[in-house]
Design a protein around this nucleic acid. Structure first.
Length: 224
DNA sequence: TAGGCCATCTGGTCCT
DNA sequence: AGGACCAGATGGCCTA
């Protein structure tokens, strides 16, 4: 399992030629490398960054000026893109600065996506401990989906209980046992399943309730 | 060393 | 035209 180290927050720590990071993606500053969009409003974020490091320009400056450090030409960067470049055809035509601006925008877009994933992780019931590896992207999405389903089932069950209690025969009615199946990890591919179980401190058995999840007694329901 | 995960670059497509 | 979104390619890091 190739999870990044907790401090790395998934940011590659390049050992070769310096890949350019924006001020906020500097591996040194991760995790929480960027202000969440929600904190500043979707539109205003990009103009709050200040360039603070010699090799790290801000995202906003990249927007305003294409020729920043983060927009260094390919031949000065390590990396894939160089090899990916179909021999200058389009890049040349398009103009280097235009291409670099597009790259910077795409980078910021992905950072925003990652921020959103971080926020999602923060509300998913799994062990939020520094010693616990961060959920991968796919694990986050699958866990979130199943958590939502579980909450929906819990709601349904709650409504059912309320209906029974409010019925005229509530004092004589015994609630039928609820088939409980909390499968937050439902749909996880094999390896991922094990990984998440490990993350959650679960045994690889059928007890698939996450550490911080609502207990079956609190939220009975049936996952679908 | 292989596999998993990730960031980044890039070109294409669609929308405003 | 410019921006957003997407998917493919690539290489780095980490763990088993």
């Amino acid at each position: 399992m190739g999870y990044p180290s907790p401090g790395g927050s998934g940011q590659p720590v390049m050992s070769g030629p310096p890949t350019v990071y924006s001020a906020s993606d500097n591996p040194q500053s991760a995790p929480g490398r960027r202000t969440p969009l929600g904190a500043v409003g979707l539109g205003g974020f990009y103009f709050q960054q200040q360039p603070t490091q010699p090799h790290a320009s801000s995202s906003s400056s990249a927007t305003n000026s294409a020729l920043t450090d983060e927009n260094r030409p390919d031949h000065e960067r390590s990396g894939a893109s160089r090899l990916n470049c179909p021999s200058k055809s389009k890049t040349t035509r398009q103009g280097k600065s235009v291409r670099l601006n597009i790259n910077a925008r795409e980078r910021r877009r992905m950072h925003d996506l990652n921020d959103a994933l971080d926020e999602l992780r923060s509300v998913i019931p799994y062990a939020h401990s520094p010693s616990v590896r961060k959920l991968s992207k796919i694990a986050t999405l699958l866990l979130a989906k199943n958590y939502i389903l579980m909450q929906g089932n819990a709601l349904d069950e709650l409504r059912r209980v309320i209906a029974v209690l409010q019925s005229p025969h509530a004092h004589t009615t015994t609630l039928p046992p609820t088939p409980v199946s909390y499968d937050l990890l439902q749909g996880f591919p094999g390896k991922l399943f094990q990984g998440v179980q490990e993350l959650q401190g679960l045994q690889p058995t059928n007890s698939q309730q996450p550490v911080n999840a609502v207990s079956p007694a609190e939220a009975p329901g049936e996952s679908t």
